[in-house]
Amino acid sequence: MQLQLKLRRISLLLLGLAIAAGGELFYDNGKGFGTVQAAAAVYAADSGAAAAFNDIQGHWAEKEIKALSDKQFLDGYKNTQDGSLSFKPNQNITRAEFVRYFVKSKGLPLSNNTESEFTDLGDSSQEDRGYIITAVEYGLINGYPDHTFRTDSTITRAEIAAILSRSEMLPPAEDASFADIPEDYWASDAIFAVQQAGLFDGYEDGSFRPDQKMTRGEAAAVIYRLIDASVS
């Protein structure tokens, strides 16, 4: 008992010294005090949440990926051999991944509803299911006529433009145009609106390429622009 009291006093002394030094602290389930940063690193290594991705240095979207990952809006892939984390910025992003990152970045409260009209969510992780249901309830994204969501399918530039436009309730653009977007294209209004808002760019040849798949790096950059614009 006396030994426990001594250990407790030592822990409290260390806590006081750390506070005096301006450190941010947490108490690790009775095991001792440590920094919040250290806790985040342990969490990241265990869960795949972003700590330091080993494949983004020098990538054109490195700043955006790091900024979002520092806020734990993004996650990556854990290397089972050495425990390192990869983001895979040039890999196409899936519908489930983008919805998860977007809902987190926007800080949307997750729905308490567990029921869904989509017939293919049974194979999804429980976490993805919650983010997808939330996004659908907010009117950000739809499924397909066959009542599927297709979580592992890649997502296109047009689909992401539609999500951004709905999320921000962007007004129609007046003078925007792209060579490959006819007026009757299903997402034309959304595409023109996000371009006018500075969230999405076209290409030098005057095209938007609406059916082109988005990479994970490109998706991170788009989300970063949206979040950065909302706090500027």
Rank of each mutant, 00 (worst) to 15 (best):
G83E: 05
S177C: 02
A135N: 03
Q91T: 11
G32R: 11
L7G: 06
I191W: 00
K78C: 09
I223V: 11
E64K: 00
D189T: 14
D180A: 01
I227Y: 03
E159C: 07
A193M: 01
P172R: 08
R8N: 14
A50K: 06
M169W: 13
I93Q: 02
L108F: 15
I227K: 04
K106G: 10
R9H: 15
A44F: 00
A18L: 10
S124I: 08
G30Q: 08
D70E: 15
T114Q: 12
D123T: 15
R225T: 04
S69D: 03
F149Q: 00
S207Q: 13
S47D: 04
S230I: 09
T114A: 08
S125N: 09
F149R: 00
R95I: 06
I93Y: 02
D152H: 15
N90G: 05
G198T: 13
A45N: 11
R216Y: 05
Y43E: 13
W186K: 04
L7M: 08
G16T: 03
G30T: 09
I141W: 15
N79H: 07
A51Y: 07
Y43K: 09
L85P: 13
L5V: 15
L164G: 12
Q81W: 07
R209D: 06
I181G: 11
K106D: 11
D28K: 01
W60Q: 13
D175C: 01
A219G: 08
R209G: 05
G198Q: 12
E159L: 15
A173F: 06
D82G: 12
F33Y: 05
A67H: 14
Q37M: 07
Q72D: 08
L14Y: 09
A219E: 06
T148D: 06
R129L: 05
G139K: 00
S124R: 04
G202H: 12
K31S: 07
D201A: 10
T134Y: 07
L68Y: 03
G34M: 01
S86V: 01
L74V: 02
I191H: 01
S84D: 00
D46R: 00
E137H: 03
G76A: 11
I181L: 08
N29I: 12
H59K: 01
K88M: 05
A162H: 07
G143N: 04
Q57W: 09
T94Y: 04
F102P: 02
F208Y: 01
L108Q: 12
G58E: 05
I93K: 01
Y185E: 12
N90V: 02
L7T: 10
A39W: 02
A221E: 10
